[in-house]
Every structure is written in structure tokens, then in C-alpha cells.
């Protein structure tokens, strides 16, 4: 079967007054119907990766190399009508910022129906009833009335649910969800996660889920990839990552978790700041902050070890000899 997603050696730079090397040699693949959680430092390139997948970055200011295939379609070669059809049809996205996805001048029902009409070619009435059904499914109370609301009349969490409804309305093969539940309370969050799990099974839909909450990753995903400075530093099943993270950054991230922290105690932040990304990394990007750094780490990019199929760690410390000690 064709892979749902196949990213190979993706490199992406933003040009401007200063260059930003946002993504550096990222490879990642997903099977049909898989759920992957993307974790990582703020600014590590998670959103940019998703936007690249949808061909959403400003072409003039962005330089992209490498390959992105979704269901066998070469995304980087798409443009014009074909790109429009691909976006929101085959792949759709729930954005981190509701302000970017929802148009303030149209009602939310209108916006969902519009997208359904465009991609599925159905009548306005049918599209409206799909919109209503989707609002119901994402647990918007009195969906009938909310259909006629403008985005600013909804609470933050409701806007977020509207975006999820919008993204799911055309039954995509791959859903890109950029922190879709951070604005939701725990009771609605768990309902949405269970709903996504259910729809994902029902439609055989694949999901990439960006989140900062390890608990959310555990609830939604089978697999986890961890990003740092525009690279994937570790990948594995959710269990492997939670129970035996090997990359020092992943370990630091798990340790910074707030579960059961003493109130008023100093929190365990990873010291230091991420690199500037003004130059392309040529050694381990985490070295300035890493408690296990050695001269070797600063000399070259760390090798990628693969202790098991579809499991990888980009760190010298993860070398088999060290792992066996």
C-alpha cells in the first residue's frame, strides 16, 4: 500500500533580513491510518513542517529542498487549482491560531459549508446539513444556533472546535492538528480526543497531532516524533518514548512535566535557550544545553541510531556500545 506520508530530507529556510534555518534534513514516514504526535521545543519547526505539507508557506521568502509525498502525491510540485483541491480535501489542518483559519466576516456555518461545496461539489443545502452535523459531532452546544454565529461571538474553546469541524467536514485522508485541544477544558478535551480516535478508525484517517502535553500524546497517538532545532531527534512508539526516552532533550522534556510537582518548588526547566538557527546546524544542536555533552558532540552532526524498526535516536550517547553499559 502507498505510504500515507513520506517526507525525505526536507530542508527549509526563511529568507529575509536574517536567514532562519527552520527545518534541517527531516525525514519522516507514516502508514495509512496512523496517528503520530509531534512534540518539541517551541520554535523547533513543528508548525512549519505542517504548513510545508500543505504548501502553505510564502514561496518568495521560503527555500525548500527535499521531497514530500502524501498518498503518492508530490506536494512540492503542486500549484494553483491542484494545490487548492489538495488542501482541505486530501489533507486538512486545524491551525494553532483560530484567527488564521476562521474568516471574521462570515458565519461559521457558512465557512464550513463553503469548504464542503468546494471540495465535494454538493448543493448549498447539503453542505449546510454537513456543517450542522459536524458542529454536533465536535460537541458544540445548540449547534443549530451556533451555525449562524460569527467567530468573535464564540468562546476560545468553541472556535477551536469549529476549526476541528471545518477540518473534518471533507473527510481528509490525513489530518494535521496543530495543538487543537490546548484551548479546551479537560472534559471537552478528552471528548475531542476520543472523537478523533473514533473518526480516525471510522474513516481510516491518519493524524499528525502537535502537542505540548505528554498526556494528550498518550491519549491520541500510537507513535511520537520529537523535534529540536528543525530536526527530528527521536522517534518511536508512544510507549517507547514515554518509558525509555533516549535522547537527552526528550528526557529533559519529560522531566519538565508538571505532574505531581510540589507547589512553589522551582520547576525543572532545561537550562539555556535553543540555537538561533541562523546557520545550518553542523554539530549537535542540543550540545550547549546537554548534561552529557562531549567533544564528539560538538565536532559533527550526531549519527542516527536505530535500535529497533522505526525507532531512532540522533545522539552519540545512544550508540549501541553505550546503550549496553
Amino acid at each position: 500500500m502507498t505510504k500515507l506520508l513520506d517526507i525525505q530530507n526536507l530542508t527549509l529556510r526563511f529568507k529575509g533580513k536574517r536567514t532562519v534555518h527552520a527545518i534541517n534534513d527531516v525525514s519522516l514516514s507514516m502508514e495509512q491510518g496512523e496517528t503520530l504526535a509531534l512534540l518539541g521545543e517551541s520554535g523547533s519547526g513543528k508548525s512549519v513542517t505542517l504548513k510545508a505539507l500543505l504548501g502553505l508557506l510564502p514561496p518568495k521568502r521560503t527555500e525548500i529542498e527535499g521531497k514530500i509525498e502524501v498518498n503518492g502525491t508530490d506536494v512540492l510540485s503542486l500549484s494553483g487549482k491542484k494545490l487548492q483541491k489538495f488542501r482541505g480535501g486530501e489533507v486538512s489542518m486545524v491551525f494553532q491560531e483560530p484567527a488564521l483559519a476562521l474568516d471574521p466576516v462570515y458565519t461559521v456555518g457558512h465557512q464550513i459549508a463553503e469548504s464542503v461545496m468546494r471540495h465535494k461539489g454538493v448543493s448549498k443545502a447539503d453542505a449546510m446539513s454537513t456543517a450542522l452535523d459536524m458542529l454536533d459531532r465536535v460537541r458544540i452546544p445548540s449547534a443549530n444556533r451556533r451555525l449562524h454565529n460569527y467567530p468573535h461571538e464564540l468562546s476560545g474553546g468553541m472556535r477551536q472546535r469549529v476549526m476541528i469541524a471545518l477540518a473534518l467536514a471533507c473527510r481528509p485522508r490525513l489530518l494535521l492538528a496543530d495543538e487543537p485541544t490546548t484551548a479546551l477544558d479537560a472534559t471537552v478535551q478528552i471528548q475531542i480526543l476520543l472523537l478523533l480516535r473514533e473518526l480516525q478508525k471510522e474513516f481510516g484517517m491518519g493524524v499528525i497531532f502537535v502537542t505540548h502535553d505528554i498526556g494528550v500524546a498518550v491519549e491520541i497517538s500510537e507513535r511520537v516524533a520529537v523535534m529540536y532545532a528543525g530536526q527530528i531527534v527521536e522517534e518511536g512508539t508512544t510507549s517507547e518514548i514515554i518509558k525509555s526516552a533516549q535522547h537527552p532533550y526528550t528526557q529533559g522534556l519529560l522531566a519538565a512535566n508538571l505532574h505531581d510537582v510540589e507547589r512553589g518548588a522551582r520547576l525543572n526547566a532545561i537550562p539555556g535557550a535553543p540555537p538561533s538557527l541562523e546557520t545550518k546546524p553542523d554539530s549537535c544542536s542540543f550540545a550547549p544545553r546537554c548534561p552529557h555533552v562531549t567533544a564528539e558532540c560538538r565536532a559533527a552532526l550526531p549519527p542516527v541510531f536505530s535500535p529497533a524498526p522505526r525507532r531512532r535516536v540522533a545522539c552519540v550517547k545512544a550508540a549501541p556500545a553505550v546503550a549496553a553499559e
Partner: peptide, 17 residues
């Protein structure tokens, strides 16, 4: 209002500190 929810856990810890 939801001031730290968009932050990763390590930056969140830094901001809370």
C-alpha cells in the same frame, strides 16, 4: 488567560518560574 498553554513544557516551566 491561557498564557502558557502554547508553550512547550520546558519553556512553560521557565515562564512559571
Amino acid at each position: 488567560d491561557e498564557a502558557v498553554s502554547a508553550l512547550d513544557k520546558s519553556v512553560e516551566a521557565q515562564v512559571l518560574n
